[in-house]
Nucleic acid binder design. Sequence first.
DNA 1: TTGTGAACAATACAATTGTATTGTCGTTGG
DNA 2: CCAACGACAATACAATTGTATTGTTCACAA
Lengths: 225, 225
Amino acid sequence: MSSDFTAGERPESDLTARARVRDAALTQFAEHGFKGATMRGIAEAAGVSLGLVQHHFGSKDALREACDAFVVEAFRHRLTRSAADGTLGEPGFMADLYETSGPLLRYLARALVDDSPAAATVFDQLAAGAEAFLSETWPDRFPAGSTAAREAAAVMAAMHSGTVVLHGHLARRFEFDPLDRANTTRIGKAMLDLYAAMGEFATSSTAERIRESANAYDDPNGEPR
Amino acid sequence: MSSDFTAGERPESDLTARARVRDAALTQFAEHGFKGATMRGIAEAAGVSLGLVQHHFGSKDALREACDAFVVEAFRHRLTRSAADGTLGEPGFMADLYETSGPLLRYLARALVDDSPAAATVFDQLAAGAEAFLSETWPDRFPAGSTAAREAAAVMAAMHSGTVVLHGHLARRFEFDPLDRANTTRIGKAMLDLYAAMGEFATSSTAERIRESANAYDDPNGEPR
DNA sequence: TTGTGAACAATACAATTGTATTGTCGTTGG
DNA sequence: CCAACGACAATACAATTGTATTGTTCACAA
């Protein structure tokens, strides 16, 4: 509640010990995974004793739940705000997120592949936001509540999350320091270029052939429903 | 070398014990992560003793390296083949991959976020394939060897990998069993629909405004170089 | 003042886990 | 025939790790 983890620089010392432990846990979980992170490692990173970590959170599972709740709340804030001004569908949204709250996103990336319930919640919110964006922008193609909108939004959420979860590999290919700011906008621009090109591909005859072969796979008899 | 892990059904019993241990390790590592998986769990899943796992692979790290090498080789095969017939850029490629070699992909998904060297190799091959696809399809927009091609390809690799790494969440939103075949094609079709729509967005005036604001961020002075 | 409880630390303990050691059995090469 | 070697198993061992226990300090209310 009272951590400025999401806002750029943090004093690191004026935080309550409990908040410092939670922040350290977020980083350790993100870096080594839930199993890989240790209570003692978290305590050391937070500059407190092992006993204090237990005193405030009880168990390792409870600590994870606290981290999950914190991340869910932080992203809910962020997502509702971006959904309000309609920037959620923009390709730069994810890159921007990574800039302002790196540790949070790295934790979320881990949680997404460990499929913790918190990650599912955030992903669902992301997909819901994407669905709203698609339905508002193209009401004809993605009617609100349609499965077309729902499925396209899910894919959009997965693909855009991919640029976050795989941010390390992306950075290696871009040849810049993954922690360096002012470089994440290049990812957003590359996404726009890619979308522009692949948009043509998706409406080409080649793509149409792919769609048909996919239909044939879904329905081998080729009969109309 | 002699495992048909990548080909649909596997007899599970006519494999050499060493291969069965490797296959079990792939599944266990994919399911619980490297730290979370245990030697004893792998031995039990393979139906052998703990001692045999050590006898064949020496240590847990060596076992991971063996898994890495196997996965890299399997994907190299698959990618070079798909690059040959030009299907690598098609949105259904990833979904198709998931169908035919699910355990392999789940292992790769874990490796990608644990950033093992093997995952980096596969991702680089994926990005290289995507770059070739882009440069061949749009030589004007993505000239071979240009940074535009390189960066767009990296983003494409990350986004498409996202549909694999986050396949569990995708399946939850699609409301079908992630292990069920004949459903992954719907992901490919949704990707085409999304690309078609976002392609228009990427060429809209809104996107152009985004590009400009990104440029301003890169170069606050706005001065020409 | 006193005592009550929270913040914080140090230690003890049992379970897990990777690895080393030792042993058995079947095959194979001389 | 037998020695050697690899496949395979059982056990032992030390290190790590989560958690329980106990103790200390200090603020604050009665």
